[in-house]
Design a protein around this nucleic acid. Sequence first.
DNA 1: TGTACATCAGTGAACGCGCGTTCACTGATGTAC
DNA 2: TGTACATCAGTGAACGCGCGTTCACTGATGTAC
Lengths: 208, 208
Amino acid sequence: MTVDAEGKVWPRRRPARRGEGDRLRDDIINAACALLEESGDTSALSLRAVARKTGVATTSIYLHFEDLNALLRAVKSWWLDLLAEEVEAAAAGAGDDPRDRVRAIAHAYVNAATNEPARYQVLFSSEITPPTAGVPYLGVRAYGSVLERVREALPASADADMVTLQFWCALHGLVTLRQTRPRFPWPDLALQVDDLATRLIDSAAQGV
Amino acid sequence: MTVDAEGKVWPRRRPARRGEGDRLRDDIINAACALLEESGDTSALSLRAVARKTGVATTSIYLHFEDLNALLRAVKSWWLDLLAEEVEAAAAGAGDDPRDRVRAIAHAYVNAATNEPARYQVLFSSEITPPTAGVPYLGVRAYGSVLERVREALPASADADMVTLQFWCALHGLVTLRQTRPRFPWPDLALQVDDLATRLIDSAAQGV
DNA sequence: TGTACATCAGTGAACGCGCGTTCACTGATGTAC
DNA sequence: TGTACATCAGTGAACGCGCGTTCACTGATGTAC
């Protein structure tokens, strides 16, 4: 048991058995996820808060992570994988029309971001520092597979790279503005996403 | 003179003369602006840092602002006005073709955001709490005038509200993603903005 | 013309807080002989 | 079968820092009489 400033009592975690030292690593990541889902703010995450939530001494975090940034990287990497999985699953389950697949991707992206706003904020409100220099961004693979889906939905003469980019930017803007300007008179989310998809796909159908 | 933790010496500000007490208010806002332009992070702003930068005792800030949030609101309001002015000036100076005016607005918006990235982040990475409840968002007037410009550029059958909204979202996404994913292989900024404008205006020219 | 007083425009010490990081320490469990 | 030892999986006290906020105080400049 530990007691915090407010006198709140935290259960103390039982030490792992020999050979199971990595259990703590997972527990720490889960605690950090929970805290970040509450705040959505990476700069509000502290080693001490994570330790309290995990039920462990602050210093124990150093056994598994070099510092707070390394822990944050682990969380971001995990969440980005989840996002990519959701998007790819939506594309795969969307029937045969390639345009429907692109629409499905767009909806899946904004739904994932909207259902877990704090996760999306953590992922996209700051750069994700790669584990080692020279490695590409996490997420480039997922972006590439979306690009392929867009290419399949457009005529060969269209600029699929640009359309994909505009799509991503617009969806990102749509999601983040809704989060930071909640009192703006937003239209229905799905309606706006559909409208955007129509405009971008149609513009490309003109051959650009 | 004051001395901070690193032994760095700060010039102490001369007190205002009688009747000029509001001078300090401006000095404080300027100091806060400078700090926020360096960090772009509202949560990194502290009363103590502002006081040091102003050359004044920390407690003196309370003479003019109820708390940090009130100071932050003043900065945001000021910067939002600057942004709106830049955009409106660009629209006014863009010739007679209403489509050119819309393009000019788009370029002015992203240029303002790109030239002062920290300002843009401060404005749009969190909600701007209005001074009093019931008052609309700061910036609604500016948004409305952009909406009018868009309406003038589209056929009457087009959904100018939706096009304006998509425009804003896409530009916002474009700007913020470039800031938080600087290592992504971005195309030329003006080229992407122009491409976006073309796609959205063309889609509306179809009458939607 | 002199002086007491009020007001303006601040100051400075102190408080308790949460934070990252360091350092030496501990207790249980497995293993070599 | 017993025991000394190594290792694993952590702990806990202490450090100095910057922070918001409080409180009583100060020094210069006007103003009433």
